[in-house]
Design a protein around this nucleic acid. Structure first.
Lengths: 256, 256
DNA sequence: GTTGACCTTAACGCAACGTAAGGGTGTATA
DNA sequence: TATACACCCTTACGTTGCGTTAAGGTCAAC
């Protein structure tokens, strides 16, 4: 079966403009152009479009979708299974929101009073969700599902006061790290204070602290470009510097 | 409790920019400005923001949110209940998508085959959803839940061929109506043909046709600005003209 | 009295399209 | 054979809901 833009658009429930746009950005090229330059789509393109829409439905950006679908070892079934899992997750989030609305209705009707913090509970869960979207798959691969769930739960359980403390800690840590880098010495006092602040910070997210895990995570900061970029915003080379400092702090992999 | 932009933003999990933007478009004004022009939010604004975020979570545009929240007889609890219903709806849609993914996985593994139409099933439901978002609440209020559900179900059950027929019918109807308006006579042959096409069109969405309902719906086209605007795009005065034509067609409220 | 963390407005940037504008194509029908 | 009409094309500017500098006031603390 061959489709022109409009036919395919009707089949899939998107606009012709969307298909042209996807062509323009190279996300979904037509199988061929006819003599007059019309876009002609075939069976493969139908399948590809279906996938694109699935990913889109999951909230991924088109660029990310393109990246995922073009990776050489792209395992379709595995990817679908992963998204199946995410959809289940999202349904859970929806349930939370539904509960939240029900509670709100009840409070409007005067039966329960809600604190300011409670009012935003559903949204806080969303923060966790967004984080999941960014780092979830990799984090799970590295640490296993149980660890990640525990971390998420800890964030959800935080009071606003604790949230504020975490933010303060983050700020302190950033400042201290920046100061420490000026000294250039990852073994110095400032650097060790930064490492300690980093440990404190981690303890807000981990159910238990270990030196090994701490050393592991800063190693990841160096290995994973996204983390590197994040820390390098504080100052170029920050991820590297932090790793050196934490290795000394934990006493693991003592350099000679 | 009083909040500055950043404090409130942290409480609610949004950015300060978002709060300033909401102020800018008049969606959420601070309770007052302090002597230096700082925005100061109070308890009422916290509540209002919570509502805004709830609506936003439901996928409503900010303009629509403002409209809903500013209508004079705005019944908060009723609105919340309406959204509660929509959330349940959305969960159903998610379930549909999950089913679709499961089917896709199965088909990738070679156990079943999917038709091109099936591949987009979950997404077609989204069309219905979007429609719901626009007109759902009012439609339900006017016709009751059962009628609306039935209509949605009919759309979902449509084959692509039927969808195409509907579109053809829509085009025919638009053209005929336009022609009819040139004659200026809502009782004329062309106008009556337009009315008949309109009846046919309705039959794709209604589980049963009645002259009374037909007359009622064209009256609504005139009363409801959004419909009026839609039909007036065909030609100014189209909604009015169609109403006259259909009243003659159905023989209801015969004018003298 | 000077940091540093807040606040302000103004303005441009962004994704993912929607929406004309201006023009070619193709086929059915008068 | 002409012409109508439903398609198709590219180009390009508009939209939503903010993110992100830029350029500059405010204020509590050291």
């Amino acid at each position: 079966m061959e489709y022109t833009v409009q036919r395919l658009s009707r089949l899939a429930g998107v606009s012709p403009r969307t298909l042209r746009y996807y062509d323009e950005i190279g996300l979904l090229k037509p199988a061929r152009l006819n003599s007059a330059g019309y876009r002609i789509y075939g069976r493969d393109e139908v399948d590809r479009l279906q996938h694109i829409l699935l990913y889109r439905e999951l909230g991924l950006g088109l660029e990310q979708i393109a990246a995922i679908m073009s990776t050489p070892g792209f395992d379709e079934v595995a990817a679908l299974q992963e998204h199946h899992r995410q959809l289940l997750n999202r349904r859970q989030q929806l349930d939370q929101l539904i509960t939240n609305i029900e509670k709100t209705i009840a409070s409007r009707e005067g039966s329960i009073a809600m604190s300011d913090e409670e009012k935003f509970e559903g949204f806080k869960r969303k923060l966790v969700e967004d984080n999941e979207k960014k780092y979830g798959a990799e984090a799970r691969a590295r640490y296993g599902d149980r660890e990640v769930e525990a971390s998420n739960q800890k964030v959800l359980d935080m009071t606003p006061q604790q949230m504020a403390e975490v933010e303060k800690l983050t700020a302190d840590f950033n400042k201290t790290l920046q100061e420490a880098m000026k000294t250039g010495n990852p073994a110095g006092e400032l650097a060790q204070r930064a490492a300690d602040l980093h440990r404190q910070w981690l303890c807000y997210f981990w159910k238990s602290y270990s030196k090994e895990a701490h050393a592991g995570v800063v190693q990841m900061y160096v290995d994973d470009q996204r983390f590197t970029e994040h820390y390098d915003k504080i100052q170029p080379g920050a991820a590297q510097f932090l790793r050196e400092a934490v290795l000394r702090y934990t006493g693991i992999e003592q350099p000679d």
